[in-house]
Structures are given as structure tokens and as C-alpha cells.
Design a protein around this nucleic acid. Structure first.
Lengths: 197, 197, 197, 197
DNA sequence: AATGAATGAGTTTTCATTCAT
DNA sequence: AATGAATGAAAACTCATTCAT
């Protein structure tokens, strides 16, 4: 539970990157000068802490994922039971998506769902949270014995992604007759039916 | 509905982009000079056909998706029945991922699964195929009446993404006790159970 | 005798470097923008021909040495006899130094006398010319048999350096009672006395 | 005539510069941070003692020359007679060059032989020593009356440079048939023949 | 007096785009 | 229509210098 203390300048840089991403900018297109201006620090300062713009961006990405995952963990820790936590996951997903600009959705999806899969810290983001929930559910005996944890976690992650895509309003090409509440109900039902003992 | 014949230069450009992406490059980071070199044409020629690098990249992206989707459509057209086509979708996903470099996975996922959601041609790629399958299944009466097409399509897409992530070998953080064949079986079972009438 | 044809842009860059050096600038302190401005070409053009500023500077240096050595060779080729050519060497040295700004002396000495010693092209500059003269003198039988060519060449080079330093008006710390003509006479006398058979 | 005691910080800076030069770095390309790191003091401290990097570098240069010249003077003071001291000059030159890295040769030559010529302290380095020796020789009556001191000093300096270049192993382009001992003998012979009464 | 984190002016370098051929 | 050398605006990066501690 030790939060590594960041240099305030580095923290300011990470915050600036986050703000810009949430405003819809693509992370890989951010200029060093934009970030430092937003962070309110000098351009050269970046190079006291990072070897290059590339490194800054990668570190910021890692940090954002970590931050969000930690938030998520905090919220979920207050909830009980397998389905309770799953519900929390949906809640958090929905509320997080509600706060960001439409143009930022793509980048946020990528940062939160996709790119972690290609990093060594696979277990620390959303995927890590889901795994904990599954683990707890298993120990509580609420999950079907014949389904391996690995599959359940994978399938749950897929359902969160489904929901996130839908909430982003871009889930499908159909004329969108369902509300997101309906979609959520279907998804939760399917989870109950498929995974619960 | 005839496929418009591309200028050979444009085709060469699109192929070059595809090659580079399959070698693991991020599409948004490709330089004009790289693409034209790979395509074997002059740098200036790009601007005979496109207004800017941006436009070239977007067009190439659209083209790649279209190509892949068309291949997919071709393969699926030889298969019968809802579950037959779904099985084909899994087959195609697996074989496609088997052919590309590990570094290219991320970009290919993004191009194929994610970014379409943010384009006007939402219905033309993988999502479009899935929608057709659902539609056909509906007309054939094999799908549960109480589930809307929209949800089924969304959920199916999620399962394909699950499978793709798993095949990419990066699906989860568990020590990987399941084979991809097992995962596939679980996913197909869940589809049968949840959606079939 | 084939002069390698340079791209006109590269030639312009080399000329610009030469001009700036002769005006007293230190070659290693030249800015890319200064050089390209002087050369009358775009800043980016440098990077079409060189990988970096450093490379440009090194190439320009090599070129300057080559150029000057070639001029020297041309002038000397019109003169006959060992002492005739040696005299020419002194003439050329004096006239070359007369043409450049005082502040450029240091840099020019370095380029012409010193740095060649640290390059692979040792034989191509002033040292190379001297060696040819010694060689010719040896074949003509005018040099003392007991002195090896190597020593004679070395000693001659030293005398040219002496003269150059003196002409640069910085030869010594003495109040300078000798004229450069006198110094020259002493140097030529010593050459005659020591090396001639 | 007492040597002014240097602040330990300044001394550390000078030593650091010397070390770096002897490792092959060009003095004009040294960064302030490199020097202070090597000296083991804070970067800002430089500006307590020097107005600018430029001034630090010039002072360090002066110091290095002075140091070396003082060493030289010390060694030579133990030797007697014109040719004895000249021999000592050659000894010192050879042993000094034997101690430094090959890459440092160029810079050391420049610092020791060349750049003094462009400084106000012309008489204080090697040139100064030579002038003293000539002076002493003159007073002792061992030098030819018809040769002015100025020329003798100049010529002697040239011979030392010759020897230094040769010892640096880069004296000429000939296949190097002479040993440095031979070259030395030739040079000493020539000095005896030309300058001694 | 000593420090070193922070700075930003001043560089180098990149690369999409143009345009003469 | 095709080219690629040339460009320069815009970006990354460096590093001497400052100044709060």
C-alpha cells in the first residue's frame, strides 16, 4: 500500500498528460511544450527526469493506468459479494466514461483495456481487478466448478469492454434501440447464468 | 457494388502500409518517406492522390479494414448455419493472428476491433459481419426471441475480442493453464447457451 | 587526377565553412544555421547529405585540407629542384597566411599542420607534399646519404611550421627583432647545410 | 614569485579538466556539468569562482600549461649545460607523451605547443623554457654569434615539436623505419651542428 | 559559501510538403 | 503523371546559468 512518492514536477507532468488525454488529445501526438505548459513547468525540466519525449509518454501512460486501477480498487473494496463487485465494475466504467470528452473515448479505451495487454504490468490494471474478484468468488464457492478462473476472468473482461463500448455510444452499428441500462441488465444476467454455481 | 479499381500507385501505397503494420509499426507513426520507399514509388507521388499524409493514412486504414472484412465475408459465405458461421469467425481470427508478428498484434487489434467503432463505416468490418450473422440467425429463428439483435451482436463481438486477445497470448494475467482450444470451447458453449433458442 | 564531383549543395556548404573559418571562426563552433545561410541553402538540406552537424564539420575539414593540399601541389609542380620546391613551400606558406584574418590563424594552423597527423589521410596534405619533395630529392641524389628520408621529411615539416608560426607574428616571445625574411633565410640555410649532399 | 594558493574548489575544477583532457576529451567541448561531476562539487559552485564556462576553461588551460611548464622547469634546473638541458627537454617530452592516452595527444599538443602562441603568456610555457636555455647558452658563449637568439629559440621549439609528433607515433606518413631514439639522435646532432659555436 | 533543481534561449534535427524537371 | 531534391516550420533537445535553499 506504499504509494511511491513522485517528484512534484513529474507528478505535474503526468497530470498534464492526463488532462490533455481527457480533453480528447491522442497521447502519442502530445508535444513536449504542450505538456510542460499545461504542467506549468519549464520545457527543459522534462529532460531532467526523462531521457526523451517518448520515455515521458510511456511513463505517463503507465502512471495513468496505475492511477485508474488504484481508484477502481478503492471503489470496489467497499462492495461485497461477487455480483456486488461486478456491479461496481459496471458502475465505475459508466461513471468514468461519463466524465470524459467524447473525443477522448478512443484513447481511454486503448489505455485502459487494450494496451495493458501488451505490457509487463498486465495484472495491475482492470485485468488485475477482475482476477481478484474471480479469485474471491472462487474461494467463496459461488462460481461454477467446471469453469476455470482463467476463462471466467477473460469473459468478464470482455463484458466490461462490451459495456464500455456501448456506453461510449459506439458499441454497434444497429440503430441503437437498446438503452445502456438494458444492455447492462443483459450483460449482468448473462454473467449470473453462465458463471454462478 | 463492384470494387472500384485502385490506381496501381495507390494500391502500392496501401500494400506498403499493410506490410509495415504487419511488421509491427504503429500506423500513426509511419512516415511518408517510409511508405513510399516500401511502395517503390516517389515521395511526391503521394500528393497526386492524397491531400496530406493524414488522408493517406486514413484511406489506407479504411482499405485494410475493408480488405480484411471482405476476406472474412468470403470465407464465411461458404459456411452454413449460425453456429457454423460463428465457428468460422473463430477460425479466421485464430489463423489471421497466427500469421502476424507479435509486435503487430496491438495495432491489428486496434485497426480491426477498436478503431472501426470510431469511424463512419462502423458496419463494414468485423462488426458488420457479425451483424449479418445475427440477422440471418434471427430470420432463421435460431436466436432467443427475448434478446435484441443489438445485444447479441455486441456480446458476440466481445467474445471474438476475448478470443483474439487470448490467441495473441496476452489474454490474461493468469499463468495460462488453458489452451486456446479450451477457451474456444467455453466461448462457443456460452454462445450456444445464451443466444440459441 | 580525377576530382570527385561534389553535389553543388555540398560544395556550397564546404565553401561556406571555409569562408567562415578564414574570417576567424572556430570550425567546431559553427552553427548549422550560419553555414547554411552563408551557403545560401535551406537548413534542412544539410540533413539530406549528412547525418549530423558533426559529420558535416568533419567532412568539411577533410575537404578543406584536401583542397589546400591540391592547390599546394599545383603550385609546386611548376617549380624545379629540391631547393626550388622548398622555396615554393615557404612562398606558399607566407602568401596563404597573408590572405587570412589574424583570428583565423590558429584554426588554419590546426587544420593544415596538426590535425592531419591524427587522421588516416596523413599523407595527403602538407606532409604528403613534403614527402614527395624529399623523394624526388633523394632520387636526384641531392640529399645526404646518411640521413633517412623519414627524418628529413619530419625536420622539413618542422621548419615550415616554424616559419608559419613566425609569419603569423606569434612565433616567439622575444621582442621580435628579426624580420620574417631573415628567419626564412636562416631556415633555408639550415636546410641546405643539414640535408644537402 | 610565490605560487598563489588556489581555493580547493578551483583546484578540484582544474584537476578535473586535466583528467578529462588526458582521457582524450577536447577541452573546448567539456560541459560544465562534466567538469563539476568529475571534480566532485556542485554545478553552481563554478559561478562562485568564475563568471562563465568560458572563463573557467581559459583559466584551467592557463593552469595546465603553467603546471606543466613548472614541472619542466624543475626537471631542467637539475641539468647543466646547453646540450644537457636540451637533452632534458627531449626526455621530458618523451616521458610526458608516454603517459597519456593516444586520443589525448592532439589536445595536449595543442595546449602545450600551439595555443600558447595565441595567448598573452607566450613566454611562460615550453617557449619560455626554451628561451631561458638559449639565453643561458648565449651568456655561456656556446652559441654561434651570427645566429640571433630569436631564430635559435624558434628552431629549437620546432625540433621539440618534431620529436613530440614523432613520439606520438604520428609524425609522418612514411612506413616508419626509424626508431624514436634514432630520430632523437638526428635532431640532437642537427642542433649541435647548427647552433653550437 | 555551496548546491543542484529548474529554467528557457538557442540549438539541432525531423519530415510533410512543394515544385522544377 | 511522376519524381525526389530542397525546403523551413515546427518539434525535440541541450546545457550554461540562475537562485531558492
Amino acid at each position: 500500500m506504499r504509494k511511491r512518492v513522485l517528484s512534484p514536477k513529474v507528478e505535474a507532468l503526468y497530470r498534464a498528460v492526463m488532462e490533455l488525454v481527457l480533453e480528447g488529445r491522442e497521447i502519442r501526438e502530445l508535444k513536449v511544450s504542450e505538456i510542460t505548459e499545461r504542467a506549468g513547468i519549464g520545457k527543459g525540466t522534462v529532460y531532467e527526469y526523462f531521457d526523451s519525449r517518448e520515455e515521458l509518454l510511456l511513463s505517463a501512460l503507465r502512471y495513468l493506468r496505475q492511477e485508474w486501477a488504484e481508484n477502481l480498487r478503492g471503489e470496489l473494496s467497499r462492495l461485497d459479494g461477487f455480483m456486488g463487485k461486478i456491479g461496481g465494475l459496471f458502475d465505475q466504467t459508466e461513471s468514468a466514461l461519463g466524465k470524459i470528452k467524447r473525443e477522448a473515448l478512443k484513447e481511454v479505451y486503448e489505455i485502459f483495456f487494450f494496451s495493458p495487454a501488451f505490457q509487463s504490468e498486465k495484472c495491475c490494471g482492470m485485468a488485475g481487478q477482475i482476477y481478484c474478484i474471480v479469485d474471491e468468488g472462487r474461494r467463496g464457492g459461488v462460481l461454477r466448478k467446471e469453469l476455470p478462473d482463467e476463462y471466467i476472468a477473460l469473459a468478464l473482461k470482455g463484458k466490461i469492454i462490451d459495456y464500455a463500448l456501448y456506453c461510449g455510444g459506439m458499441g454497434d452499428c444497429a440503430p441503437g434501440k437498446c438503452t445502456s441500462a438494458q444492455i447492462r441488465k443483459y450483460l449482468l444476467d448473462s454473467i449470473r447464468m453462465e458463471f454462478l454455481a
